[in-house]
Simulated assay, not measured.
Amino acid sequence: MDFGQAAPNPFRLCSGLRVLGYLMILMVAAIIAVTYYAVVIVVWSPRLLHGGLSSAALALAVLVPFHLLLVLLIWSYFMVVFRDPGTVPVNWRPTFDVESLEITSSDSVAHESRLSSESSSGLERRLNIGYCNFCQNNKPPRCHHCSVCQRCVLKMDHHCVWVVNCVGARNYKFFLLFLLYTFLETILDTLALLPHFITFFGDAKNHSSSAQNLAVTFIAFVLNLAFSLSLLCFVVMHSSLVLSNTTTIEVYEKKKAVTWKYDIGRRKNFEQVFGTKKIFWFLPLFSEKDLENIPALGGLEFPMRSDVEA
């Protein structure tokens, strides 16, 4: 079906925000570098190398989890940055092999097109699918057009300038792990730098430490404290969204619904994001079996509650 010429996109200039995202990547690298220098080089390595047995043991208790969390944090971060959140295949059409899969969607900029098919029982069904005027393509359920990326994103949660990418069906887990490990890392860094921060003013007055080390320690402590407090809110918010099977974009839509159609139980909601293999839950990876057996991880089909009509 020909829908004519694509409408002018007034949000095309928003794609310029991607430049800001590249600056954010440099900022993330700078924060990690400053923190690493303060925690490892200035504070705890001297205690490990030149302290007594108890001091060395305490240093190991800090440095081992510090490096473990740092590896997981960076790994998750790069997976969010470089993993495609999911885009709509050209000329996509819905399937409905099982009755639990949603076959309707709506969007404020959608143009509805009607398709008809027959179920296995021979009864005709009407499928209401969204249409994106900008991409000139059909839109699966929970799909939204990103004005920054200039494309439709599957199960779009939001566009994150910190990762220069959209957060969607295929990288949402990695984004959540990045949030979690960054939160835990900043908490650990704050606690690890706290004793040194308390003696900061005494050291500055007595000139017992170099000005560079004092400045780096002070900046690292303040940054990690600020990020840990702000990330706590995001961790709590996204934990609630995962357990209710809701995206950030869908929060308002959910408020208007008596029963949220995608909420199929906390366990299954969680598995739609993290998979069923427990060994992979805390790693930015998916098992091949989960990718094959959980359609929601692909971002095109989503189970619905049986007591909610499509």
Score class of each variant (00 low, 15 high):
F274N: 01
F175A: 08
D307K: 06
I249W: 03
S209P: 00
L123H: 13
N224S: 11
W92G: 00
Y252Q: 12
A7N: 01
N245P: 02
E292S: 14
D189C: 15
V216Y: 04
D2A: 05
L232S: 10
V236F: 12
V222P: 03
V88R: 03
Y77P: 01
E250W: 10
M27W: 13
T248W: 07
S100K: 15
R47W: 06
R305A: 05
V64I: 15
A204T: 13
R12A: 15
H159M: 00
F282P: 05
N9S: 06
C14D: 11
P46K: 03
E301K: 11
L300V: 05
L191V: 11
V34A: 13
M24C: 15
P295Q: 11
L297T: 11
K277F: 14
K155M: 11
T35Q: 13
W281C: 01
I219D: 04
E301N: 13
D157E: 10
V242A: 03
H145S: 01
K256W: 02
S55H: 12
A29H: 03
L68D: 03
G265Y: 09
V258C: 05
I264Y: 01
P65H: 14
D307N: 09
I41L: 12
S106F: 05
M24D: 13
I103P: 00
L58V: 09
F302V: 00
L193W: 02
W260K: 06
T95M: 08
R142H: 05
L127A: 07
P8W: 10
A61R: 08
P85L: 09
E292Q: 15
L180I: 04
Q136E: 09
S113Y: 03
